[in-house]
Each structure stands twice: as structure tokens, then as C-alpha cells.
């Protein structure tokens, strides 16, 4: 399974990255343990110039293209931003602005943020969750916010564990779901599957659906034309 962690922290070391790492470890532990989860961390600071260039040119440079590909093929995502001016940082938003708008459809995402005080904690609910809902991601119910004071207080570890369990459950479920869809051999994997209440989206190609070529999917032209014929 592939877990991609997007961290928009700017300082080194950064508390955003610290939170990202804590979450990534917790998710890995629960999603199958060491070796079962391939974790890739995308540090947006390293991509800042390429992200800005992508906004002006319309295409990503090599390092950004690789990060966008990783995000678009991940089984699960952890996204962490510092709170800037009452919202996610501009760099964080710009990264998701240059991502293909379809890339996150149906993908499980854990949202997290860091800030100087607890007064901004609802940024998860009023900024991050709507962004990822718009991108049609499956956002896990628990978001994790860490203010400076949380690092020494009780509660953060529990929130990390709860959110990680939710993301790991969805990731396992999606992978198991894909195996079930692929054939009966996959049914054995359902032992240790997520709680029954977790919905497992399985994509079923529509009849006469898109055809693939050159790495693209297209609707056959006859269908496109037929859809326009007056009743």
C-alpha cells in the first residue's frame, strides 16, 4: 500500500512535519505494519518554485510532476498545513490547485494542521474539509490539529491514533475491495478487514464506458455525438 504525506511546513525542523511524521507512523502501524506500507513524504517547501512556475506555465517541472504522480496514485494521503491568516497556507493550496482536479476522487485523506494556539483549530472544518470534499476525496472523520501547547499536553496522541485508525481502515478496505472486485481469491483477505460500517467504494466501469489509449481515457466519439442528438 502506498501512503503519501504532504507537508506544507516551512521551517526546519517544522512542527507541521513533526505532526505529519507522527501521523504517518501511526497509519503505517495500523495499515499492516512495517514493510506493508510504502510511505512517501512530499515536502512542499522543496517544490515551492516549481509550484509557482506551474501556475505561470501550466505544466509541472520534473520534481513536481513526480510528487503529483505520487499523490494521484496513493492508496491514502495525509495532508498537513500550518495555519496562515486563518486558513491553510497559500503554498498548500497552490499544490492542490495544480493537481489534476480528478486525482483525489475516492481517495482516503486525513487532514491535519498546526498553529500557534488552539483558537484556529476549526480551520480543519471550515477550510481543509471543504477543499477535499470539493476534490471528491473521502476525508476521514477525525482531523488532527496541533497547537504549540498540544505537544506537551494530553489528548494529541489519542487524536492521532483515532485519525490514523480511520485512515488505515479505509486504505485496507479499498485495497481489499479492489481484490474482491478482481476475483474470489481476494475474499480470503477480508479477515481483519475494517469495521462493516466502512463503505468500500469499488469503481465499476459503466457499460460502453471510456476507452484507454496513450495514457488517456476517452468516451468513444459515437457516444459523445449521440448524447447531443435531440430527443
Amino acid at each position: 500500500m502506498r501512503l503519501v504525506v504532504v507537508s506544507a511546513g516551512l521551517s526546519v525542523p517544522s512542527s507541521t512535519r513533526l505532526l505529519a511524521d507522527r501521523l504517518a507512523t501511526a497509519v503505517s502501524d495500523r495499515a499492516g505494519g512495517q514493510g506493508a506500507v510504502d510511505v512517501r513524504v512530499v515536502e512542499l517547501r522543496d517544490l515551492a518554485v516549481e509550484i509557482a512556475h506551474n501556475l505561470t506555465t501550466g505544466f509541472p517541472g520534473p520534481a513536481l510532476a513526480s510528487a503529483l504522480d505520487a499523490v494521484a496514485t496513493a492508496d491514502g494521503l495525509i495532508v498537513v498545513t500550518p495555519v496562515f491568516s486563518a486558513s491553510y497556507s497559500g503554498l498548500f493550496k497552490s499544490f492542490f490547485d495544480v493537481l489534476d482536479p480528478e486525482a483525489l476522487t475516492g481517495r482516503p485523506v486525513l487532514i491535519a494542521a498546526t498553529g500557534g494556539s488552539a483558537r484556529h483549530s476549526l480551520v480543519l472544518e471550515h477550510a481543509l474539509r471543504p477543499l477535499f470534499s470539493y476534490l471528491r476525496a473521502v476525508v476521514v472523520p477525525t482531523g488532527v490539529y496541533a497547537a504549540s501547547e498540544d505537544w506537551g499536553a494530553e489528548g494529541l496522541a489519542e487524536r492521532i491514533e483515532r485519525a490514523a485508525a480511520e485512515l488505515a481502515g479505509l486504505m485496507r478496505g479499498l485495497t481489499a475491495g479492489a481484490r474482491v472486485a478482481a476475483g474470489p481469491a481476494g475474499s480470503a483477505d477480508r479477515a481483519g478487514s475494517p469495521p462493516e460500517s466502512v463503505q468500500v467504494p469499488v469503481s465499476v466501469p459503466a457499460p460502453g464506458g471510456p476507452v484507454g489509449a496513450g495514457g488517456f481515457e476517452v468516451i468513444p466519439f459515437e457516444q459523445q455525438l449521440a448524447a447531443l442528438r435531440p430527443e
Binding site: 506555465t57 501550466g58 505544466f59 489509449a213 496513450g214 495514457g215 488517456f216 476517452v218 466519439f221
Partner: peptide, 22 residues
């Protein structure tokens, strides 16, 4: 003119394979 080669390659490949398909 504003795009990297691999994108152009994929678009042209799509067109060529569908041209043959039709």
C-alpha cells in the same frame, strides 16, 4: 509549444491509435 515532450507524446499516441481504431 508550452508543454513537455511526454505530454505531447501521449496526446499524439491517443490520436494515432484511435485513428487506426476508426
Amino acid at each position: 509549444i508550452f508543454w513537455p515532450a511526454d505530454h505531447t507524446k501521449r496526446m499524439v499516441e491517443l490520436y494515432r491509435s484511435r485513428y487506426a481504431h476508426y
